[in-house]
Design a protein around this nucleic acid. Structure first.
Lengths: 117, 117
DNA sequence: ATGATCCACAACCATATGGTAGTGGATTTT
DNA sequence: AAAATCCACTACCATATGGTTGTGGATCAT
């Protein structure tokens, strides 16, 4: 079976801890230890989350001495953006329709005012 | 605990069947039966997937006679887009840096050519 | 060399999810 | 009224995930 890259990406993003880690990494690479500190989670759990991000190709891990440095892959997040933007036309149309409805309601209201009830 | 809306949204998007259902619904509302046909999955399973999408507030279900009509909520997908776009600055900077590296490599290559090896 | 630090691996548990099969309730259709 | 259609509910199973504890291997500092 073909691997569902986008699927594993979304799955990786479904956890708030991992999204926070991404936010942290967007401000520069960090070691596993550096990622553990802010999160009140065990080091083992952080390693698991990182493994998940690595599997989803969102993060790259490189060994430097006794540290593992994690780096964010910008392409990964762009992939998500591209997916969502592919529906841009749909949601803009929907919002336009909503606008139209609102406007019609407004004019009906002013109509009511003119004609009384 | 506070509900992690974005998290359940991403989780809902992690399944290829559900993403295909979203693609289908972006072209207009459909009944459960209408959503079952293209997917070679049992009706029960499709109902489960729809329930997942409803829980993530991506889809709204309305009963009409014996049918349940599913409609896509455009705001839900816009949420995903907004999340990804919040990292736009990060990835554009990264791509710029990559460009810089590539350019430096190019100039080094032309340098090698000039000086021989 | 010894201890401390950073990290990975394994075993284990509870829960959620993807999937099946079976059933029964409404609503249309005939 | 009877049959067919559309859908939801339940029970059940295998697997993946979030989380824990325990441990051991490298690497750095003293």
């Amino acid at each position: 079976m073909v691997v569902d890259h986008l699927g594993t990406t979304f799955a990786a993003l479904s956890d708030p801890t991992r999204r926070a880690m991404i936010e942290r990494l967007s401000r520069g690479p960090a070691s596993v230890h550096g990622l553990t500190e802010p999160f009140a989670l065990s080091q083992q759990m952080i390693s698991k989350h990182i493994a998940y991000l690595v599997r989803a190709r969102i993060v790259i891990k490189t060994r430097r001495g006794r540290e593992s440095v994690c780096t964010l892959r910008p392409e990964a997040i762009k992939t998500v953006s591209d997916w969502a933007i592919s529906y841009r036309q749909f949601w803009e149309e929907s919002f336009d329709k909503l606008d139209a409805v609102v406007n019609r309601m407004k004019s009906e209201v002013s109509n009511d005012k003119k004609h009384g009830q």
